[in-house]
Amino acid sequence: MSAHAIVEIRHLSCVLGGRTVLRDISLRVEEGETVVLLGRSGSGKTTLLKAVNGLTTPSAGEVWFEGRPAAQWDPIQLRRRMGYVIQDAGLFPHWTVAANVGLVPRLENWPPDRVAARVESLLEAVGLAPGEFRERYPRQLSGGQKQRVGIARALAADPPLLLLDEPFAALDPITRFELQRQFLHLRRTVRKTALFVTHDVREALMMASRVALLRDGALDLILTPEEFLAASTAEAKAFLASLEENWRQDERPPRI
């Protein structure tokens, strides 16, 4: 039996402000799989996530979600089935951490005590002690704490698809590694399907079932992490070179 595609992007192009930001992208994300979108800054990663979420209207092509074209979905229902971790968190400044995290369950009319319990366990899961953080406002959080609230918010209603836009970018390496491992564990245990954006090759290779490399808005290649290590396109080589450079620096710290 062939795997079931949660998201299928078909010949998608996006023109924004006269610039072609995405060109002819085709990509399937199958159930339980994490496809990592890897690319330089400005390569169109965020735009692709927005197109999947319906925030950006494609100028050509289409997105299918759970076997139906996005155009046939009620956009509200479509978005509530996708947990979106927005780049730079995008929290609501007038709501506490608990209110931010509980948003989608509230919109879905969960009873208040079930929302509260869910918020509690999610805050634990992302490493924010509920007692300390529940009642804080976003302005009272550090960048990395905001990001973790954003992750908890995306997971809240247990959506079938996660869209993660550089979710671990503002974290210290220890917390980042912790959350990366938790994410891998989550994927194994509840088979989360995810589109995961990063510009960090190392993170891409760690998290990905498959790596989709974006270059100037076009899909350069899409390979498993093992295949990616041997990839031969110039862009893949450039990313792999940065990886080697990192390793070399790890072994021999630069002299000052």
Binding site: N53, R79, G90, F92, P93
Partner: peptide
């Protein structure tokens, strides 16, 4: 960004 985030959450 806040408005867009509200739309994105459904």
């Amino acid at each position: 960004g806040v408005r867009e985030s509200a739309v994105a959450m459904g």
